[in-house]
Design a protein around this nucleic acid. Structure first.
Lengths: 117, 117
DNA sequence: TCCATATGTCGAGAATACCCGAAATGTGGA
DNA sequence: TCCACATTTCGGGTATTCTCGACATATGGA
């Protein structure tokens, strides 16, 4: 991921409505959610939400698909992964020891796959 | 990390000069860099850089310490870790399988500690 | 004390982001 | 075809951010 795209993604997430939208969509993976439901869930006018969704989409953080009358939005977690890797990359490059605690803190996420004995 | 602080950090990094500043400081851990050197390295007027550094500091991403005449800035990697954890948390909560590839992609960072056999 | 260096603060202009009412587009059914 | 619904686009007003010249503050040495 290049810096320009990283900034796009960071700016997209640096706004409360959009951040909540993205988190809401992550929780609704892989089904997604129609634009109207998102606007209703976050109590935001539908046209305002449309603008926010467009910004998230241009940043590659969400994708949309028309399902008859609805337009269903989904979170693109791989984009979040790319962003995370971009941010962490610098520590890894020259300072692997700096990066270790960060990666370590992330590992508990996998504990729900195989529960601790 | 609460959402308010996450947004502060995201907004701080969503600007090219500040993002480059942070990455520069990460590469200069743990020595840090004086404000003037940072401004010179990125070809930005010192007062403009001062404003950007203040925004990064309020987001907790950098810290400053006076060393006689210089004010040396350092990147706070733990804050980046908290931000990363905040972003990843949602996947982990309900969707551990979504999170697994993200964590997996991060693990190669540790390869420089113990080289693959 | 006075000066040079390093950094921060103030103020204002330009650019950009945010929000939402109103109108337009696209879809499926009567 | 016409209508109801879902979503986007347009227009604007307001708020915020970005930038930088000018000035202010802090430190150490002559």
């Amino acid at each position: 991921m290049e810096q320009v795209n990283a900034i796009l993604a960071l700016a997209a997430l640096a706004q409360s409505t959009r951040l909540e939208t993205f988190r809401l969509l992550v929780r609704h993976e892989p089904d997604g959610l129609p634009a109207g439901d998102i606007a209703r869930a976050l109590a935001v006018p539908h046209n305002t939400m449309s603008t926010h969704l467009n910004i998230l989409a241009r940043a590659g953080l969400v994708s949309s698909e028309r399902r008859s009358r609805l337009i269903v939005y989904r979170a693109d977690v791989s984009r979040l992964r790319d962003l995370t890797l971009f941010l962490v990359q610098d520590c890894c490059g020259g300072n692997a020891d700096l990066c270790a605690p960060l990666v370590e803190a992330l590992n508990p996420c996998r504990s729900s796959e195989k529960v601790a004995p």
